[in-house]
């Protein structure tokens, strides 16, 4: 058997699976849904782009995802930096604690926000006890709730990617900069940050893409008042049964994620220079 044929044989089961379970359904649904009453997705898409409501939902999705990414970065990077600078034998445990939540379902991780932010929730009770509100402060179904829930969901990813680029940086580099008279802040900005940047940007893209496509959190914390593209897609697909519209939303969502990926690819290359 030739080498090429052998390579082909090893790849064949996977390629067959991807063709049938991914490329075919994905391609047909996005570009030519057969069962929809109006099979013209691009026509639907055009209509949607002129529809204020859909644009508002898309803008909210991007806004919430961008803010979530920024806060994840502000919270996650310091944690990653401290873990990378902790004694070797403690790094493993600290990292495990920080990323353990990734092993739990989003339902488990979102549930407690209903308790914290709800009308009879912890924050509402606290505000009432402090005399700042007279009970029943509803923080659920707001963009604030969405951002809080998504940030808690995705900060571990930021920690993980930041840590993996920070842990490659020799402490001695930073010490050398300090020895040559740089302040801690300057040593950090001029030495650590440029080396860590590509990894951090990859993390930021993962968080942004995750926040744009997240479903559980917007469903439970955003409700119908603060829909995102994901809950809108679900609404079209499962409640309104308008599959053409669902496909058009799916196209917008996919395009956003792919564009974010391309931009971060460019940025991380620039950062690496």
């Amino acid at each position: 058997m030739s080498r090429r044929a052998a390579s082909g044989l090893l790849l064949l089961p996977g390629v067959a699976l991807l063709a049938f379970g991914f490329l075919y359904p994905f391609g047909v649904t996005l570009f030519a849904p057969p069962a929809a009453e109006d099979p013209d997705v691009l026509g639907k898409l055009g209509g949607m782009l002129g529809d204020g409501y859909v644009l508002e939902v898309a803008a909210r999705t991007v806004r919430v995802a961008a803010l979530t990414t920024a806060i994840c970065l502000l919270l996650g990077f310091p944690v990653a930096y401290l873990i990378a600078r902790a004694p070797r034998r403690r790094q493993g445990l600290l990292l495990a604690l920080a990323v353990f939540p990734l092993l739990l379902s989003t339902v488990v991780r979102t549930f407690s926000w209903l308790v914290i932010l709800g009308r009879n929730g912890l924050i509402s009770d606290l505000l009432t006890a402090l005399g700042l509100a007279d009970g029943g402060t509803q923080l659920l179904y707001t963009e604030f709730a969405l951002i809080a829930g998504l940030t808690q969901l995705f900060t571990p990813i930021m920690i993980l990617t930041s840590y993996s680029s920070l842990s490659h940086i020799d402490v001695k580099l930073e010490e050398a900069a300090r020895g040559l008279g740089a302040s801690p802040g300057r040593a950090f900005r001029r030495v650590v940050l440029p080396i860590a940047l590509p990894g951090v940007l990859v993390g930021a893209m993962l968080v942004f893409a995750g926040a744009v496509t997240a479903f559980t959190t917007p469903l439970l914390l955003g409700g119908t008042r603060n829909r995102t593209l994901a809950t809108l897609l679900y609404d079209y697909a499962n409640v309104k049964l308008d599959w053409g519209a669902a496909s058009a939303v799916a196209l917008i969502m996919t395009a956003l994620v792919v564009v974010a990926g391309l931009i971060s690819g460019r940025l991380s290359k620039v950062g690496a220079v």
Partner: peptide, 13 residues
């Protein structure tokens, strides 16, 4: 890379 919800919708259809 693709949104899981979109893949789920495509497989459903």
């Amino acid at each position: 890379i693709v949104p899981e919800l979109v893949l789920g919708f495509a497989l459903f259809q």
